[in-house]
Design a binder for these strands. Structure first.
Length: 572
RNA sequence: GCCCCCGUAGCUCAACGGAUAGAGUACAAGCCUCCGGAGCUUGGGGUACAGGUUCGAUUCCUGUCGGGGGCGCCA
């Protein structure tokens, strides 16, 4: 979504990096000066966090990338760059922060931070506290993320639940990266589904007032329809068929739509997901608006008549066939109001629009992107993320679901059974494009097998230790940290320092998954440290420095969990 | 028939095109005179198949095989 082209990557990296990486990149760039680089385009250089701790805090592939064009062995190129780098660094402000610049086969240049730089990280985290990890990368660019957008024809399902968890976390991440994010729910309060809803309520009402007929199969079958029908009758004081006949059909679907929307809003709030904007198809995509937009598209030559219908020439923009926007009976297909809605999004000034859809809508992407282009916007300004389904497992067996029969697992059932924290965490535990197995038993377990408890436990444990220390008059150190040199201490500090970088990765991938993975890793880092070293001991100086370290850990765990929408309990 | 997602350890999953492919779980053996044992340590095992792109492929491209989902003048 950030529009990377590999040729631009070098420059963009400089723009997106944290201060330290920025400085390193500049040093690397400077160290290339004496190399003959004019005869070929600059390849993309990365400065990444190596997986293996043996390779330092940062690793740069510059020598590997330049080896080909320079027609030299990567290690030879690396050697020169390394020597230049050492001069660069010892001459500047990086001297205090970089302990070692190492060259390792096949040609990576590895940077090791000094203990002072790592100690500074801890201090920085505690200074920035609940803001640690926030960045200005997004430059206050306006982004809209539209998700869930369930038809108000029934309670929310697990599919919606996963979209809600993913969308909300993603919105938080983009917010932390410095974008101005608007979370939006689009209400399809018109069309077939809504008509069927109205009809379903009316038909159930007919049953209740004593009429005998068979409830149509293509109506909504859920029990909630019966409850709503009963409530509707009571509200309007209708007791018989005659009374029912006096009520206009639209009253049924208006009532149903409103009631179900309230249910949906309430369930989402209970799930911790709050939308900034609720848009209604009936308001945005009125017949006037649709005709206006279709008129514009016709002017541009993107529409044509055939077989009595009006077609959108979506093949012009890469779709595999043209699409009907207005049927031969004069009614619109769903595409027509959707085109209007997306124009509306861009007209409201969003530079980037993100939609989260279920896998059943993936075939719809090319025509909508085509429509966006036909309207005159760049197709990259609309990103559609397909969130794969979650299958709920109980006792190792999948629970089936079918909206049509009204027998499906609802968001509410999952939430009530495992709690909001476990539910949200579990929905984020896989890449959003991968199908998810949601094990109800595991999510409920209060053991380390359950990853959400594992992470929350680390947070609670830290708070407990901090309390104990405070009761002995020991506080986290406010001085420069100078005594943290044990492997577990340095490892934990390294993990802490990666938090901002992880958020960038999530933003780049448009997927909160990496943050979940990171929090589990951070919790492990803490537990390993805690198991090896005593925090509160006779040595008060060391104790207070270790308290500072775990306090920083507490902050990062809390910030990360907050972004995911999971609580960080002080006690469990 | 066409489109999308997925094939990695017994199982569930990781790995911006990079270094010895990592975790959890299961199984086995250990660790509490001590800050929360809801924790930690140690062990073995794996990239579906065939090509291609290049210094380098689990990753990108093509094809084959397998699993899941989707295709409408429905939404």
């Amino acid at each position: 979504m950030f529009g990377f082209e590999s040729s631009q990557l070098f420059l963009i990296l400089l723009f997106m990096l944290s201060d330290l990486k920025n400085q390193l990149m500049t040093a690397i760039e400077n160290s290339l000066r004496q190399l003959p680089l004019n005869s070929f385009p600059m390849p993309a250089i990365t400065l990444e966090i190596p997986e293996n701790k043996m390779h330092g805090e940062f690793a740069c592939n510059v020598a590997l990338r330049l080896a080909g064009p320079l027609k030299q062995n990567p290690m030879e190129v690396g050697k020169k760059i390394q020597q230049n780098l050492q001069k660069e660094i010892s001459a500047g402000s990086l001297q205090q922060k970089i302990q070692l610049v190492d060259l390792k086969p096949p040609g990576f240049i590895n940077f090791f931070l000094s203990a002072a730089a790592l100690g500074e990280t801890v201090t920085q985290i505690r200074r920035e506290a609940e803001r640690y990890g926030r960045q200005r990368f997004g430059n206050a660019k306006k982004i809209q993320i539209e998700f869930v957008s369930a038809n108000p024809t029934g309670p929310l399902s697990v599919a919606h639940a996963r979209q809600a968890a993913v969308g909300d976390a993603l919105a938080n991440i983009l917010d932390w990266l410095g974008f101005r994010v608007t979370k939006e729910f689009y209400v399809n309060d018109e069309g077939n589904q809504i008509n069927i809803l109205g009809r379903s309520i009316r038909d159930r009402a007919r049953e209740i007032v004593g009429e005998s007929f068979s409830f149509p199969e293509d109506n909504y079958q859920g029990e909630y329809i019966k409850d709503m029908a009963g409530d509707f009758l009571a509200r309007h004081e209708v007791r018989d068929r005659a009374g029912l006949d006096r009520i206009a059909p639209e009253f049924f679907f208006q009532y149903g739509c409103e009631e179900l929307l309230n249910v949906i809003k309430q369930e989402l709030e209970n799930f911790g997901v709050h939308f900034d904007v609720w848009s209604f198809q009936s308001k945005i995509a009125t017949a006037d608006h649709i005709e206006k937009v279709l008129g514009d598209l016709r002017q541009k030559g993107s529409l044509y008549d055939q077989d009595g219908a009006l077609w959108f020439r979506s093949t012009q923009f890469g779709d595999d066939k043209d699409r009907v926007v207005k049927k031969s009976d004069g009614t619109y297909t769903y595409l027509a109001p959707d085109i209007v809605y997306h124009q509306n999004k861009f007209e409201r000034g969003f530079e980037q629009v993100i939609n989260l859809w279920g896998p059943d809508h993936h075939g719809y992407i090319p025509r909508l992107k085509a429509a966006v282009q036909a309207l005159g916007y760049h197709s990259k300004n609309l990103v559609v993320l397909i969130v794969q389904l979650a299958t709920i497992f109980r006792d190792g067996k999948p629970l089936s679901m079918s909206t049509r029969r009204g027998q499906y697992i609802s968001l509410r059932e999952v939430m009530e059974e495992v709690g909001v924290d476990a539910a949200r965490f579990f929905f984020l535990m896989r890449h959003l494009k991968a199908p998810l197995e949601f094990d109800l038993e595991l999510a409920k377990k209060q053991t380390p097998e359950n990853p959400v408890y594992y992470v929350q436990y680390a947070h609670a444990r830290i708070n407990s230790v901090l309390q104990l220390a405070a009761s002995q008059g020991l506080q986290p150190s406010r001085e420069d940290l100078q005594h943290l040199s044990q492997p577990e201490e340095l490892n934990l500090t390294r993990e802490l320092a990666q938090f901002p970088e992880i958020l960038l990765t999530c933003g780049h991938q448009l997927d909160p998954y990496s943050l979940v993975d990171y929090l589990e890793r951070l919790a492990t880092g803490f537990h390993k440290f805690y198991d090896t070293h005593r925090v509160v001991s006779e040595d008060r100086t060391l104790s207070s420095e270790r308290l500072a370290l775990i306090d920083a850990t507490r902050i990062v765990l809390a910030n990360g969990l907050k972004i995911l929408g999971v609580s960080a309990p002080v006690r469990m």
